[in-house]
Design a protein around this nucleic acid. Structure first.
Length: 262
DNA sequence: ATGGCACGCATGGCGTGA
C-alpha cells in the first residue's frame, strides 16, 4: 500500500530570524521532510527544541554568519553525512544528505557565484561538476534519490522575470546553465516542472522589490526539487507556497514542495 | 530607471545575497 511522502525545500535566510514562520509552516503542512538552506548559525546555537517539540527530528551543519543546511523529518534520518567528498573543499555547511523512509535526499546550497568575471563563479561551476561525480560515487539512477535545495540556477527562460536582461547574471548565464545541465543529466527529472508547466512560478523574490515587485512577478525559480526517474514516476503533485513570502518576517525565498506516493 | 531590503557581526558601517 503506497503512502504519501511530502518533501519541501526552503532557503530560510537565518533559521534564528525565521524560527517563527518555519515552525508555523511545519505545524500547518506537516511535510515528511523539510530541507533548509542558509541557516546562518553555528551548530552550538541551532534552535533544536522548537522542532523536537512538534515531533520533528533535526540534523544540521552550519558555520558563523553564512551558509548552513538543515534537514528536519518526521521519521528518523539514516545515513546522515555532510559535505562533498569529491574535490578539494568539502563545504560541509553547504550539503547534507540522509535516507528517510527509504528515500535518499541530498540537500544543497550551491555557491551563488557573485559575478561571472570572478573566481567565485568558477568555483560555482566546479561545484556542479563535483556534484555529478558525487552522485556517481554514492548512488545509481535506479535508486530513489532526490536532489533539492537552493541551487542558485534558473535553468530556462521560463524560470526568471525578463530573462533577456539576465544573460550575464551568475544564476542565469550560459556557463551556469551548461554546468547545471550536465549535473542534471546524470539522471534527474524536474519534479516541480512536471506538475507545474505554467510560467511566472518563482521561489525567490529580492527583498528590495517590495510587495509591488512580488505582485509584478519579478522573481526567480532558483530552488528545485529533482528526482531520479524511478522516484519521479511516483510524484503526484508539486508547488510553490507563496504564503510565507507574503507573510510577516519573510525570507526572500519561499517554500517549494513535492508529493510522492511511495 | 541598475535603485531597493534583510541578515549577521568581538557591529555603529560592511560583506553578502541573487
Amino acid at each position: 500500500m503506497a503512502r504519501k511522502f511530502v518533501v519541501a525545500t526552503w532557503n530560510v535566510n537565518s533559521i534564528r530570524a525565521r524560527i517563527g514562520p518555519v515552525i508555523a509552516w511545519l505545524k500547518k503542512r506537516r511535510p515528511d521532510v523539510l530541507c533548509m538552506q542558509e541557516t546562518k548559525v553555528i551548530d552550538e546555537f541551532f534552535p533544536v527544541e522548537p522542532f523536537t517539540e512538534i515531533g520533528y527530528n533535526v540534523v544540521f551543519r552550519g558555520q558563523k554568519a553564512y551558509n548552513g543546511v538543515a534537514m528536519v523529518s518526521l521519521e528518523k534520518p539514516k545515513k546522515v553525512s555532510y559535505g562533498l567528498d569529491v574535490g578539494k573543499e568539502p563545504d560541509k555547511s553547504r550539503l547534507i544528505r540522509a535516507s528517510i523512509a527509504g528515500v535518499n535526499i541530498v540537500n544543497t546550497y550551491i555557491p551563488q557565484g557573485r559575478d561571472i568575471e570572478t573566481e567565485h563563479y568558477k568555483y560555482k561551476l566546479r561545484w556542479f561538476a563535483r556534484l555529478k561525480r558525487f552522485f556517481t560515487k554514492h548512488y545509481t539512477t535506479r535508486k530513489r534519490l532526490i536532489w533539492l535545495g537552493d541551487l542558485n540556477i534558473a535553468p530556462a527562460p521560463i524560470d526568471v522575470y525578463k530573462p533577456e536582461e539576465k544573460t550575464d547574471h551568475v544564476c542565469y548565464h550560459e556557463g551556469v546553465q551548461v554546468a547545471f545541465r550536465k549535473a542534471f543529466d546524470w539522471g534527474f527529472v524536474d519534479v516541480f516542472r512536471k506538475h507545474r508547466p505554467e510560467p511566472e512560478l518563482y521561489s525567490f523574490y529580492d527583498y528590495r522589490i517590495g510587495r509591488s515587485g512580488i505582485r509584478r512577478k519579478m522573481g526567480w525559480r532558483v530552488d528545485h526539487i529533482l528526482a531520479t526517474k524511478t522516484l519521479a514516476k511516483k510524484s503526484v503533485n508539486a508547488g510553490i507556497d507563496m504564503k510565507p513570502r507574503l507573510g510577516p518576517r519573510p525570507s526572500d525565498h519561499t517554500v517549494m514542495f513535492a508529493e510522492f506516493r511511495i
